[in-house]
Simulated assay, not measured.
Amino acid sequence: MRLLFVADPLEQFNIKKDSTFAMMKEAAARGHEILACEPRHLVWQRGGRVGATMRQVALSGDPVYWFTEQHVPETALADVDAVLMRKDPPFDSEYFYATHLLEQAEREGARVFNKPAALRDHPEKLAILEFPQLIGPTLVTRDAEAIKRFHAEHRDIILKPLDGMGGMGIFRVGADGLNLGSITETLNRHGTTTVMVQRYLPEIVSGDKRILVIAGAPVPYCLARIPQGSEIRGNLAAGGKGVAQPLSARDLEIAETLGPILAARGLLLAGLDVIGDCLTEINVTSPTCFREISDQTGFDVAKTFIDALEAALTSA
């Protein structure tokens, strides 16, 4: 099969950690043709179909120069067997426009994973609002006074932007309220930008757990991303230490509640973030942690994912 990965530039991949690379490696080992492009390469013109200039990728096995390539003339996305949207956040306007082009490609016969409409419908911070029974105390607002009231009630809170990734822009304000006003102004831009506020969950010291759900079923291990030193963020990009561990009973409950729902909406792959007993995010753009979980546990996440992709393509 011909598999097109819509992703960030290949030259930016850290193949020791990159989940998209893990997918490519497993797919190539099965004899599938690997193609790649960036969202900026997508194009549509009246009378034609959504297409892209692509790179045909061969994996070299070299840890530095890890691929060789041949450039492919503009090809319609409907003429490949699957399109995997793996562009990293942020979900900005250009990402939004790319989902519309991918949805048009679907109308023309392309098979896109995750479904473009589902990507739009599940912003990674706000998607949890649909499942209040699984989350901790949470507020979404632009209003500085509402944030003050939330802080007065919960005393120890986390504030974060809705479009951040990798722990970017996350602040903790303790019981003394120190710098709450300044932090609020920074994040809500004087009332023009919506922010999320959550009660601080002390269980973060044991890790912000990433639970992968593939075709509705949870991977049996999660990656607990544990903050280091004085840092409050467990994100690997913020220096957190990743420790793979079996799912707890609560982890499994959350994953089994959400898995069938997300799969039915066209989300072949999702990453659930859980702190303690609380769901904190639903990641759908380019969920990661394949390599860390596989390396530490021996459970082959990429194999499970490509199995699910092949099953989805052959069941159509």
Score class of each variant (00 low, 15 high):
216 G>D: 04
173 V>M: 05
193 T>S: 12
159 L>Y: 11
231 E>H: 12
228 Q>N: 10
247 L>R: 15
163 D>K: 09
239 G>I: 08
205 V>H: 03
277 D>W: 00
291 R>N: 00
256 E>R: 13
163 D>L: 11
238 A>L: 14
268 L>W: 00
275 I>V: 11
198 Q>I: 01
206 S>T: 13
197 V>Q: 02
175 A>S: 12
192 T>F: 04
182 S>P: 08
182 S>W: 03
257 T>N: 12
200 Y>M: 13
162 L>A: 11
289 C>K: 02
203 E>H: 01
247 L>E: 15
240 G>A: 13
291 R>C: 07
208 D>W: 01
214 I>A: 03
231 E>R: 12
254 I>A: 12
161 P>V: 04
197 V>T: 14
160 K>T: 00
278 C>V: 06
242 G>H: 02
268 L>P: 02
191 G>L: 11
233 R>E: 09
226 I>F: 09
200 Y>D: 07
176 D>I: 09
210 R>F: 05
271 G>L: 02
253 E>H: 13
224 A>T: 06
165 M>R: 14
294 S>A: 09
175 A>V: 14
195 V>M: 00
168 M>H: 15
171 F>D: 08
202 P>F: 09
260 P>M: 05
222 C>R: 09
221 Y>C: 06
232 I>C: 10
254 I>T: 00
241 K>N: 14
282 I>K: 11
261 I>M: 14
250 R>L: 05
261 I>H: 10
271 G>W: 06
198 Q>P: 08
206 S>W: 03
183 I>C: 01
272 L>C: 10
238 A>P: 11
287 P>Y: 08
264 A>T: 10
190 H>I: 04
278 C>F: 15
215 A>N: 15
235 N>E: 11
170 I>W: 14
206 S>F: 03
281 E>R: 12
263 A>D: 14
280 T>K: 10
276 G>V: 09
189 R>A: 05
229 G>W: 07
216 G>P: 11
254 I>Y: 06
218 P>N: 13
266 G>R: 04
171 F>Y: 15
158 I>V: 15
294 S>P: 05
273 D>F: 05
249 A>K: 08
187 L>P: 00
239 G>F: 08
284 V>N: 08
292 E>K: 00
270 A>M: 08
158 I>R: 03
185 E>F: 10
253 E>F: 15
175 A>N: 09
198 Q>C: 12
265 R>M: 14
288 T>L: 06
239 G>L: 02
262 L>N: 02
182 S>C: 08
270 A>D: 07
220 P>K: 11
164 G>M: 00
249 A>F: 05
285 T>D: 04
227 P>W: 04
